[in-house]
């Protein structure tokens, strides 16, 4: 899922203080799962904003748009969006941008900082697993991504800086190559690491410019 965290309240207040009628739009997908931008968090944020003296007199509605990255989920909220002077979107960076594209005349204020693609490790604890770099290497690395999980995105084993399985930049970070090594060793597949992986073609990643994807079979079905 996409993991995000709420922006500092002061930053949100600065953005919304010119407005009298605010729609807080929660999103029902990833940011609900990571307990940042779902309905519950939207109601909490609403309560908090109503207490801010700078925002005195503001009217706030809270709605949940199930998926802010999908056009069809906006249909039921036309009236609320029309009513509002501005929208505080609790969607991820994708949701905020798509909202703004659908309603180009409306100020769509982001409520979150979008962080990464990750997993829930523990209650209230998420870690990064994927960068969406466009060419999946996991088959060669025991199902652990060195692009996303090694601090230096090294392709051919660890740097000399890890110790006790921890990354040199922060002991809270696991060394991805230690995990790769442990897993492949347990599976008796360490020979995979003897291969030297060549320089990566980063053009499939963001380095090739903003990406898009067309699936031709979908068009055939529609036709």
């Amino acid at each position: 899922m996409i993991v995000a965290e709420q922006k500092p309240i002061e930053e949100i207040v600065q953005s919304i203080k010119p407005y009298k009628k605010l729609l807080i739009a929660a999103c029902g997908t990833c940011v609900t799962v990571c307990m940042t931008g779902g309905e519950k968090e939207a109601i909490e944020l609403c309560t908090l904003l109503e207490l801010v003296s700078e925002l005195e007199g503001i009217q706030i509605r809270v709605k949940t748009i199930e998926r802010q990255c999908d056009r069809e989920f906006f249909v039921d909220f036309e009236e609320d969006i029309e009513w509002a002077d501005a929208v505080l979107s609790m969607g991820c960076g994708v949701g905020v941008q798509f909202f703004a594209e659908l309603y180009p005349g409306k100020h769509i204020v982001p409520a979150l900082n979008t962080k990464f693609f990750g997993v829930t490790r523990d209650v209230g604890y998420w870690t990064e697993f994927c960068q969406g770099c466009g060419e999946c290497l996991l088959e060669k690395t025991g199902g652990v991504c060195p692009v996303a999980r090694c601090s230096k995105s090294l392709f051919n084993g660890p740097c000399g800086g890890s110790s006790d399985g921890r990354c040199e930049i922060n002991p809270d970070i696991e060394c991805a190559w230690q995990i790769i090594y442990d897993r492949l060793k347990a599976q008796n597949r360490l020979d995979l690491l003897l291969e030297t992986l060549p320089p990566r073609d980063w053009s499939s990643s963001r380095d090739g410019g903003p990406r898009s994807l067309r699936k031709s079979s979908v068009y055939l079905e529609v036709d």
Partner: peptide
Amino acid sequence: TTNPFADPRELQIIRLKKKIE
């Protein structure tokens, strides 16, 4: 460079071999 004390040693040796290759 190589680090004789870095973990995991087996993998560091593999890395040294790869550097030589």
